[in-house]
Amino acid sequence: MTGTPKISIRALRKSFGSKSVLQGLDLDIEEGTSLVIIGGSGTGKSVLLKCVLGLIPPDSGEILIDGVNILKLSSFERARRTREIGMLFQGSALFDSYNVWENVAFRLIHGEGKGRGAAREKAVECLAKVGLAADVGDLQPSELSGGMQKRVALARAIAADPKVLFFDEPTTGLDPITADVINRLIIERVKALGATAISITHDMGSARRIADHIAMIFDGRIIWRGRADEVGASGNPYVDQFVNGRAEGPIKMALRAD
């Protein structure tokens, strides 16, 4: 279906105190496609996703989901619409007071009121989809390696079969092989659900693998957007610098914290 994009962001602004993070950001994502957002550390990529999820209120602008501006809705209505988005957080954000299967089943038990037995079955099923055996379900999150935590977080995000999935740096801090496993799982799960996906990554290898489209954020705006296979020949000096990982170029990284 073409026409209204699944998610559409218009002139979004957000500052924290005197620090402006998003400065009039526009972005569309079509239903059933996978968009990867790249950009330097601290440019507001995580803040952008949290705005769309309704976790951070932006200062101004519009966020349309299925053509409806969620910022204009009551908090109850907004929660109802953002509920269909599954999110994999940058640090996994597993509940450390619950074991693995209870984490995966959290939404089913506490959000949807399913019985613990049925929820556990579904959790084990989701764990299997990310390549984890059922007995991992009884471990505590703190007993897992970083890569396993990401898998559990992925299982938790897909447990309710969401129509939209957000991945915030799913492979950061993982070895290349585990990173590739996670990338494959993401592609596979997004396909299986027919979901719309937005991912954030610093890793150009993952970006090329996961994305249909790539967008680059700089200075609080999207400065380039194109098909994933065009990113190497964008002709945009900012994108070139980022993709090739050069310290020299138009993007001046602050060497000191300001």
Partner: peptide, 9 residues
Amino acid sequence: DAMSTLAVD
């Protein structure tokens, strides 16, 4: 934040 995205207030 994760809790909110899991439909639990």
